[in-house]
């Protein structure tokens, strides 16, 4: 069930340009007269019908959600990928090489773990915003977001990989590989890495749901995706302004989409954890 929801949402996001009835980023297709059209009710001026209604600028809500989900998922996947790469590399190095390198990496991880990751992400976002010139800010906002969430989330991966590497390093196959003279790098990547990958995958799924929520939260707070390239969080931020005047659909549909996405990825993570756990098989 959750698998089905995740796949259909991801498919919807990937094929957004084909599925969406309108292109929300093309000003030529927008008609301000269509603003604030309710779901499935014809607009009072143009008689156009929109499945999920339109927002203040006459953008079709269904289309903005499909394109917004694209940005949310893109940021989520990229951020987790960045965190995973960083965490796995640092975890392998800390576990395999040990010594002062291990001490430094794990102390940094400890310090970062003291702070909630959303706070770290905000801080990185603020700093990155400060060093980019004003005219590029909107263009790089998505990448800054990926960087901020990715860098705030690597600790989990590093800790797990380090722990698993410490165990694997003692095993005979690793000693054998060392004895026949394989380089440290090869031992780490070809021998240890494949054996510590299962828990990494489970953490990645859980992190994905968290990253999507983190992205939505940051965008909602106004320190994420800009209104010109709205993610689900930005859409909720926009929709919140119209909650008081009765245009509920601008807020409701993006919020429900975000919830469905986060919940089903979470459930998928639970399932994956059980499936990959050898003790339960």
């Amino acid at each position: 069930m959750s698998f089905f929801v995740v796949v259909s949402l991801i498919m919807g996001a990937i094929f957004a340009p084909l599925l969406a009835p309108y292109d929300p980023f093309d000003p030529a297709t927008l008609n301000l007269m269509n603003g604030f059209t309710g779901p499935l009710t014809p607009n009072q001026f143009t008689q156009d019908v929109f499945v999920l209604g339109t927002d203040d600028q006459g953008r079709d809500v269904l289309s903005t959600i499909l394109f917004g989900m694209r940005i949310s998922l893109f940021v989520g996947f990229s951020a987790v990928f960045l965190a995973m790469i960083l965490g796995v590399i640092l975890g392998l190095l800390a576990g395999y090489i040990g010594g002062w390198l291990d001490a430094v990496i794990m102390r940094v991880a400890d310090v970062q773990l003291t702070f909630p990751s959303i706070l770290v992400a905000m801080l990185i976002f603020g700093i990155a915003k400060g060093v980019t010139p004003a005219e590029f800010r909107d263009q790089v906002a998505i990448w800054v977001l990926i960087l901020a969430i990715g860098l705030s989330d690597w600790v989990q991966f590093a800790r797990v990989v380090r722990g698993a590497t410490l165990v694997e390093r003692q095993k005979e196959y690793v000693q054998a590989a060392q004895l026949i003279g394989r380089a440290n790098l090869a031992v780490m990547l070809k021998h240890i890495l494949p054996n510590v990958l299962n828990p990494v995958l489970v953490i990645a799924t859980i992190s994905l749901a968290l990253a999507i929520i983190a992205e939505a939260t940051l965008s909602f707070l106004g320190v994420g995706a800009p209104p010109t390239k709205p993610s689900l969080g930005t859409l909720i931020r926009i929709g919140q302004e119209y909650m008081f005047s009765g245009e509920w659909w601008i807020l409701f549909f993006p919020a429900i989409t975000l919830l469905a996405l986060a919940l089903s990825i979470n459930l998928l993570g639970d399932w994956l954890r059980d499936a990959l756990n050898p003790r339960l098989r």
Binding site: F115, I118, L119, M122, F125, G126, T217, F220, G222
Partner: peptide, 26 residues
């Protein structure tokens, strides 16, 4: 950390809102 979010939603004039505005305006 969650106070930052709550304060933004409710426009609560606390340090969390101050921080998020500071991030927005560098």
């Amino acid at each position: 950390a969650f106070a930052i979010i709550t304060e933004t939603v409710f426009q609560w004039p606390g340090v969390g809102l101050l921080f998020i505005n500071a991030v927005q305006f560098v």
